[in-house]
Design a protein around this nucleic acid. Structure first.
Lengths: 194, 194, 194, 194
DNA sequence: AATGAATGAGTTTTCATTCAT
DNA sequence: TATGAATGAAAACTCATTCAT
């Protein structure tokens, strides 16, 4: 019984993250999630509409958090654009390093959610919009290379970090998170040339 | 009837790529693949052991091709390390730009294959080993930054390109492939600073 | 909150009649009945053994009432046989016209009760026995056609009235109850020939 | 294995009639129908969309047959209105006496089909429209009592026959079909008075 | 008496795979 | 080789019923 009193809803979600991470969304059984949460399988449906709802809630939580953080970050005047990008890199590594199964789910399973019907999409879209604005600000200020395509950089950076996180979550012993974040910052800022 | 005489095996695989790309592996039906290939669903099993075998063959083909290309590339003496990395970037964009559904499948569905039982793993592992060696050579030669962690760079670059390809394949109108490859090279080589 | 103090048992039964009439027995949820009755769903089980018990009680009440009425009717010496049959027709229309949902349930849901285990069966059987005796008396007295098969007439009359009640309860605006009962009496007594 | 070659679709429907008649629609299991038909339960879905589709097809067949018969009957010039009504009574007894389980299903289960989505409704509505016309013709010709309400008579007659059929199908030994049809005609034509 | 969260048995339906033709 | 009808295992989900409070 992993679930504490009054925390059943959150406990089921945590169990679903563990199970989805281990088996993948489609190979996960509601009964496995229930067992991990220490409840009967029918009880899952007291808190979540169906299996897809569990996945949707996971992504809702992550993207809402990322959106809130980037919103605050965007408004800060004490940080340069490049500081903000480094801050974002740290933020993402911090969120997922605290929860490796969440990283696995985040990296692999978003594809199973239809954008049209998912409520996380608002936060997802806004996160990227603000991310683009931060980069654009950096270009305007002259700090970033004006030949950079903002959308390409945005996707390249997120994709690179996702793949690193996926490999790290699969085998955390093989990677030092510190090495990951430092190298990402290094590559981004200076390139790989000596 | 898309299949030419004597090419049924390849035709089925191409159909599976189209169907997997459109619906995702788990939401694809063998009957859909058979219909797309213009054959009866039972006939799929004359050429492929089962549904997972189709996916495995797709990845086998891609990783084998990448392995062969990188093997040849590694041996070339007329190219510098940085030339070879640029060549690899072009290679990957070329392979998938010629076949957008393959890009979608490549980016999204590898997770459904168990590394333990899949024969593509040999090529996958070798590809990365040689990739690491190319980067290491560059460091030894003094062309690449010696502070770079080889494995981090390797995963970061591939992950970034995968995510770009995914977004491009989803909506090719929104992205110029030329822009993608130029920007990736730019970021990799010089970073984003002006 | 439809239930008055001290009347909870009856209130639950009335709610079950409304809900069974609206959705049908198998599509009705105990939780709907409880909600209609203004109580918690678990409380239903303080007064009724289970869902089937609710239906059994509904039919128990109806058939017991019909049995009691026909018992009294049978003994009356001031009425002829044909008077008694007309009286019965009026009785049935009166009972259900006062409670349309009860008519719907009565007409449609008796099938879900197993005769072997239901206590309403005693009243049901007795009702029909006395009904037969009234008709037989009419034949003996010479008032009714001696070629009439008593059981056929009994079922035909009740079935005809049930179907009329079902259609009336579904759409009361379309039927005048007065028209129903007058026509049934007309057909029964004189046939349809001019 | 009750199903003959080339007759699987019809065999499944016949099995569903037997099973629905025995247990009622909601207490019938697809697995029971499949077992009765001598096939695997999945095979039911090769021929019928789902459980409700089976019921819908049963009623479609019955009402289509009744509609076709009454259409032909309505046009006949060699029969009086009262002949046509007697003919209809015989028709209904004939159809169901040949198939007692069908009678049980017909009488008890139509309620589970929603009129809005069922294709049998056209035939059902037309059957009743033509039935009304036959009765109206009888009134106009002076053969039938002009005080008769057409719709009341229509429902009363059908309901009475349904209930008789239900009781007959439950226990065919107890009823002579000849007695049923003769008595119904007798009551309808002359009433019960001597 | 009253509650309502929790249970878990039970059924429809899907679809990868087989195999008689 | 090729077919496609038939299979049957497997899982999401529902909801009557229970019972700790």
């Amino acid at each position: 019984m992993r679930i504490k009193e009054g925390n059943k809803e959150a406990g089921i979600l945590e169990s679903s993250i563990r199970v989805f991470a281990k088996f993948g969304y489609h190979n996960s059984r509601i009964s496995q999630i229930a067992e991990d949460a220490g409840i009967a399988s029918g009880s899952v449906y007291l808190y979540y509409k169906n299996k897809e709802d569990l996945l949707a809630c996971i992504f809702q939580n992550v993207w809402e958090l990322l959106y809130k953080e980037i919103s605050v970050l965007h408004k800060r005047k004490d940080l340069s654009s490049i500081d903000k990008i480094e801050y974002l890199i740290d933020l993402i590594f911090d969120i997922f390093s605290a929860n490796p199964p969440l990283a696995t789910v985040f990296v692999n399973e978003q594809i199973h959610l239809k954008k049209e019907t998912s409520s996380f999409v608002y936060f997802y879209d806004e996160f990227f919009k603000i991310g683009e604005r931060i980069i654009e600000d950096g270009i305007k200020e002259g700090a970033l290379n004006s030949n950079l395509n903002v959308r390409v950089f945005k996707f390249f950076l997120l994709g690179g970090m996702k793949y690193l996180l996926e490999n790290w979550a699969n085998d955390p012993k093989n990677f030092q998170l510190t090495t990951l974040r430092q190298n990402v910052k290094l590559i981004i800022k200076r390139g790989i040339l000596s």
